[in-house]
Design a binder for these strands. Structure first.
Lengths: 207, 207
DNA sequence: GTCTATATTCCGATAGAC
DNA sequence: GTCTATCGGAATATAGAC
């Protein structure tokens, strides 16, 4: 912890800029974000953005790195923790849906920005450390061998869980269309997801 | 079928423009797409874009309407057809994953463009016709009553299926990160999805 | 460090010749 | 219908005063 994670001093101008940029980039992406809007939101002048961060590109990189750096451990958690399998799954779904319903823009930002600028992400933003799926793999195989769960490929199980947790939140308008729900009904529907996904996954795992 | 769906004559200049715009908008979205790039891809001059479609906005609307108009029936299909439930689910997953693996950009385009410009979509692009989930709802309830499947909310079932079909394809880089796969391994993984999702859903429905 | 003013680049759109 | 040339505005970036 020698360095403070690239993150500037609290309440400083640099911090205000960073926070404003975070909000704007998160919702509009690199192409949709405008330096003027970031400056306005930060309550400072456009020129100051360039004083602290040399260019839009650099500012974007700082924000994107922070967003990814914050999200990556959340994914690794499912895969690396040492809890018993069922407990791990219950805990993960609960925690994960909580995080996403509070920060619905983050997964969509990551997905669509990587798609639009793959080079940038691969070269400068993505973390070099990958999660280590070995623990989870072994756990699933043990449970299968013991006859406590149905046979299943662990990797598909991981992706199934993550899909059902994230997708409805990022595709809210699409889901509303598919289900014919109004705004209030959709809100309710999303609140039911914790229990429904947990039930669904555990049911699919029964031997 | 009085009108030809707004679609111009095959091989005409207008068609070449439309196709090029389709490709560029699909991958880069409204903000990321540039008229110059579309013109280059179509092999014509920038001015011609404005001759046929008065503005970038209008060109975008034509493309977005076509993309959505093509996608909406695909979703409705799961919900409205009259096949027996299990067969319907098997068929849908198979068909749906096929469509998405051939057109991986479409769901992401729809999701992220709606998020960035909700007004535009709600007012001018989204179809007024919603799918009618009644058939599917009744079917699920009948199967539950007959004891042939476990109790489940039909709406969550629909969304679970759609989530597991779409998400891995649009979040490919994220999934690669989570699973620690290289490009070839990821390709293989996605090919396994058809069977894996079908198995998973049917397992979750066992009484 | 912060501001105003200005330079520079890019991009959507139009004018006008052919 | 198609092109070249150009306009006009917007957005990023810099210069320079305070």
């Amino acid at each position: 912890m020698a360095k403070k994670e690239d993150q500037p001093q609290a309440d400083s101008t640099e911090q205000k800029i960073f926070d404003a940029a975070h909000e704007v980039f998160l919702q509009k992406g690199m192409d949709g974000a405008k330096m003027q809007e970031i400056a306005d939101l930060a309550g400072i002048n456009k020129a100051l953005l360039h004083y602290y961060y040399r260019s839009k590109e650099k500012l974007y990189e700082a924000v994107a790195r922070a967003i990814i750096g914050h999200a990556a451990p959340v994914i690794s958690q499912l895969i690396e923790s040492e809890l018993p399998l069922e407990e791990k799954i219950r805990h993960f779904i609960d925690f994960y849906i909580g995080v996403i319903s509070r920060n619905p823009f983050i997964p969509l930002f990551i997905i669509s920005e990587i798609n639009k600028h793959p080079e940038r992400f691969i070269e400068t933003i993505l973390p070099k450390e990958l999660p280590k799926p070995q623990v989870f793999m072994r756990q699933v195989e043990e449970e299968i061998a013991a006859g406590r769960i149905r046979e299943i490929h662990p990797k598909h199980l991981i992706i199934n869980i993550i899909s059902m947790c994230i997708f409805p939140f990022i595709a809210k308008p699409m889901a509303r269309f598919a289900l014919g729900l109004n705004s209030a009904e959709m809100k309710l529907f999303l609140e039911e997801r914790r229990d429904q996904v947990t039930e669904f996954v555990l049911a699919a795992l029964r031997p």
